[in-house]
């Protein structure tokens, strides 16, 4: 691990001011991703700015929305009563990730910015456009069972590994950030990027910008929702495919549907095509399968991951059926 200077930020302004002037700065949350990457020499910050003393408050608003401080631990979010009651898909997505120990350490800000689990990104001896722009991508012709089927590019086929972020995408969360230029708010769908020819640029964050909070708008509060994760073992493994889904049925028809996929793309994948296909349709297995087909029509498999296309379709249909069927 490269040497670094450690600073514990007392407030947001101090963190940003330091990040704006210190050499090769990096914010530090729980460290569960960054410390690992530093040990592997994939990340080599020279200044570490610990932001875990900044806001970890979770504020449930009377209108149904919730504001989550970026420093909130993943466990704290998943166990929060208002989140479990208003946005069960988010609690379940978080609980589906990592282990209890890691969820006790990991922060919301760090979860959004965790890096891909692509083996070639983690291997300093491999070619990786994300780690070293312009060097190529060994995954395209290599072991790519866990890689992307949607929205990938010839430059990069890595996936975003977060479970929590899949739920945040479906819930239309808002990411509040603050940097040297002031504050702004980003819709969740505009926070992470597709790889294009710059897979090293993963988010819309500018230099020294800090995530301060994630907001759950009231819009999806109280919808019947869940998160289903398919992985190689029953627990403590990243998603091959996952589905965050919410719906509201009126007179047997889908009055509202929200759907996002994990494990399939460089960013949490909002399944807008499937949502559009379902809106106003009668809830039922045929409609769910047809919508899944429509969403996955754009999928492009690699040599080792074609199975994900059918897996995603079935998981979408099963998750929506579960939600629709459980309706009293």
């Amino acid at each position: 691990m490269q040497r670094f200077e450690y600073h514990r930020a007392a407030d947001t302004a101090a963190a940003i001011a330091l990040a704006a002037r210190a050499p090769e700065p990096h914010y530090l949350g729980g460290g569960t991703n960054l410390v690992d990457l530093m040990r592997e020499n994939i990340e080599r910050p020279r200044t570490i700015i610990d932001v875990t003393a900044l806001s970890s408050a979770i504020e449930a608003r009377p209108d149904g929305g919730i504001l989550i401080g970026a420093g909130a631990k993943n466990t704290a979010v998943a166990e929060h009563r208002a989140i479990r009651e208003r946005f069960p898909m988010l609690a379940r997505a978080i609980l589906a990730g990592a282990s209890a120990q890691i969820r006790n350490m990991a922060t919301v800000g760090g979860n959004l910015l965790q890096r891909t689990r692509c083996y070639y990104f983690y291997d300093d001896a491999a070619h990786c456009n994300k780690r070293k722009p312009g060097t190529g991508c060994d995954a395209v012709e290599g072991f790519n069972r866990i890689h992307a089927i949607l929205g990938a590019s010839p430059s990069c086929v890595a996936t975003h590994p977060s479970d929590m972020c899949v739920a945040l995408a479906a819930l239309d969360a808002i990411v509040h950030v603050e940097g040297p230029g002031g504050r702004r708010s980003l819709p969740f769908g505009a926070f992470h990027r597709l790889p294009g020819d710059r897979p090293d640029l993963e988010t819309a964050l500018g230099p020294a910008e800090l995530i301060t909070a994630v907001e759950l708008p009231a819009g999806a509060a109280g919808l019947r929702s869940t998160y289903r994760k398919v992985r190689d073992r029953a627990s403590y493994a990243f998603a091959l495919v996952s589905v965050a889904a919410a719906l509201r049925i009126e007179d047997g028809k889908l009055a509202e549907v929200r759907l996002a996929l994990g494990g399939v793309a460089h960013k949490p994948w909002r399944a807008a095509t499937a949502e559009a296909a379902l809106r106003g349709k009668p809830a039922g297995a045929d409609a769910f399968r047809a919508a899944a087909e429509a969403e996955l029509a754009a999928a492009r498999p690699l040599s080792g991951n074609a199975f994900k296309i059918e897996l995603a379709k079935r998981t979408i249909a099963a998750t929506l059926s579960e939600l629709a069927g459980a309706r009293p």
């Binding site: 450690y6 690992d36 875990t52 120990q101 890691i102 006790n104």
Partner: peptide, 19 residues
């Protein structure tokens, strides 16, 4: 490497001691 910090379990291998 699981230890307890203020009663909560964490993985000590991913924890920078300084924190």
């Amino acid at each position: 490497c699981t230890v307890l910090v203020d009663g909560e379990r964490i993985n000590a291998c991913l924890a920078l001691a300084v924190q």
